[in-house]
Design a protein around this nucleic acid. Structure first.
Lengths: 192, 192
DNA sequence: AGTATTTCTTAACTTAAGTGAACGAGTTAT
DNA sequence: ATAACTCGTTCACTTAAGTTAAGAAATACT
């Protein structure tokens, strides 16, 4: 697991063995069971997540209905909005599968960043990269129909369609579960 | 204009007079006419923008149709995807109105950041903030209908509805201009 | 001023998503 | 083992968005 983390980090910065050791003393690795809720609406969390194994999702509960807006899988990093802006969370985070997560606290993060400016640099690179990536995702979402979005997802993250329940996928695509069912049937019909 | 810039920066970092002077020697301020295209699809730009006055938009041309995905107005900062990832741009950027922009080159930016670590810190704060903000925008888009999106926009950026052509607003909301017209008529009908 | 062009709206029709309900398959709980 | 739940699918019906076309209103052009 540690190797996976260090390999990921090495894409951004080069760590000495000392620096790696410091990281490992921090006890960042957490195992979580499928269904575990990591963050609830209204909470003021300071935790950021990095998925080493498994899948977590963010979702709102609007009029009693779950609306899933994001999935984070292997090597995805995610800092909830409430951590950045120091406000209560609008959404929930839970584990879609059994997970191994790297969980870092904002206070601790600040400490590390102060000690190792390298980390600060990596964080900046990461958030710039994520911002650009998310802009593209948002653009694609805006410029395409639910059917196109589904086909696009099939291309880009085919694993999601296997490992995630349909009704969660549906709201991720901005539609109702019944519409996703119908849409899938329509696509199969066309292929024949 | 400079005051506006320095006031914005002061929300993140504190600049000395010397540092302000260095900034001013860089000739960052540009005036652009309405309709000017700042970036074309396929180009490899290195320019980031900060809107001091006016409004710029990003748009794709898909099957000969413009699809507007974002508007940047006063005090909005924007670094195109192609700058971050060093790839040709997928989209266009043009001025919706006459604009006064702060245009900074990536190479130049790197130089400044190296000389003044403060800037680096500000850039990181900005991109983290923007990432969090955009995540919320994306979530709202996914979890709401075109009509709700329009009403939401009316609340959050009422100026846009005045200053931007309807057909550009429509694709920004993920629908066709005709649907936006109809939707507006529907809302008026309900109010009566 | 007058013409051309773009922009916005309206309408009729088509297509797809939302809604409410029902059903079967699979899972969990007791 | 049975009951209770969840999940995915299907159906009939409603509602809203896409499409095509036409015309009015505003803007730009010369």
């Amino acid at each position: 697991m540690q190797d996976i983390l260090f390999e990921f980090i090495s894409k951004y910065i080069t760590l000495t063995q000392d620096e790696k050791n410091v990281l490992l003393t921090l006890d960042l690795f957490h195992s979580e069971k499928k269904g575990t809720v990591l963050l609830k609406e209204g909470q003021n969390s300071k935790e950021s997540y990095f998925v080493l194994k498994g899948c977590i999702r963010t979702y709102y509960i609007i009029d009693g209905e779950e609306k899933t807006t994001a999935f984070y899988t292997e090597l995805n990093a995610f800092t909830p909005n409430c951590v950045v802006n120091k406000i209560p969370s609008d959404y929930f985070i839970s584990c879609v599968e059994d997970c191994i997560l790297l969980v870092s606290n904002a206070d601790m993060g600040a400490e590390i960043n102060a000690k190792f400016p390298k980390f600060d640099i990596m964080c900046r690179m990461l958030s710039e990269e994520l911002l650009a990536k998310q802009q593209i995702d948002f653009d694609e979402f805006k410029t395409s129909s639910p059917e196109q979005r589904y086909l696009n997802l099939l291309q880009k993250r085919p694993d999601l369609i296997q490992r995630v329940p349909q009704h969660q996928l549906a709201s991720y695509l901005g539609i109702k579960p019944q519409s996703l069912s119908r849409l899938r049937a329509r696509i199969l019909e066309k292929k024949r």
